[in-house]
């Protein structure tokens, strides 16, 4: 059994050998010519055909085994390198996009949280301020009431003392002017009446 590769090699070799037949026939029938073109000197044909076959065969082996696979592999490497570079560039681009998106998301999250916290703090501060204001108002209110009550007490006390002082002063004045000894009870009655007419005016 021949391998497929061996068979195809044999086929190619047979094709090549048969294809040289016209040249060999030409070479075999060589005759010397006198004058004219050197190309038509048939005696030179066999050697030229022989060396053409030898050199071309060597060239074919060199080109098909050494040169074309080398150039082909370099070109293939370049194509695959470009393709892989493009792919990695695409991947990097996608990664950058994802990073940017997550950064954007983190930023907006932080912004929302900050806004919420600020609103909560504001509300708390407002509530605190309101509460303390109310407490203060309450405290001040009681203080004012107390002070007013005290003031009213002091006033009524002062009024009573004023009646006594007025009665004393009036009895002494009467004694010295008229030499009459006015009783306190009589005087007190008059003074009370007088005070009653004055007091409303003062209260205003």
């Amino acid at each position: 059994m021949y391998s497929v590769k061996y068979q195809s090699f044999v086929k190619s070799a047979v094709i090549a050998a048969v294809s040289f037949a016209p040249s060999v026939v030409l070479a075999a029938g060589g005759k010397e010519s006198k004058g004219g073109l050197p190309q038509l000197d048939l005696t030179t044909w066999p050697t030229q055909i022989f060396w053409l076959i030898v050199t071309f065969a060597i060239a074919y082996v060199l080109m098909s085994r050494l040169v074309t696979p080398k150039i082909g592999s370099v070109l293939e490497n370049r194509a695959s390198k470009i393709a892989s570079d493009l792919e990695s560039a695409k991947a990097a681009d996608a990664e950058a996009k994802a990073t940017f998106d997550s950064y954007e998301k983190a930023l907006s999250d932080a912004r929302n949280e900050a806004a919420a916290q600020a609103a909560a703090a504001m509300a708390e501060a407002k509530a605190n301020a309101q509460a303390s204001e109310e407490a203060l108002a309450k405290k001040l209110g009681t203080k004012i009431k107390k002070a007013e009550a005290k003031l009213a007490d002091m006033r009524s006390e002062a009024m009573e003392n004023l009646e006594d002082i007025a009665a004393d002063a009036a009895s002494q004045a009467v004694q010295q002017l008229a030499g009459i000894k006015a009783t306190k009870a009589v005087l007190g009655k008059h003074i009370k009446n007088a005070a009653k007419t004055v007091a409303p005016q003062e209260a205003n």
Binding site: S19, L26, Q39, I49
Partner: peptide, 20 residues
């Protein structure tokens, strides 16, 4: 510039192509 060289190549190609 040698007719036999170019003809050897051309006839080789001709016969080979016909066989193929």
């Amino acid at each position: 510039s040698q007719i036999i060289v170019t003809f050897a190549m051309a006839s080789f190609i001709f016969v080979a192509v016909t066989l193929i």
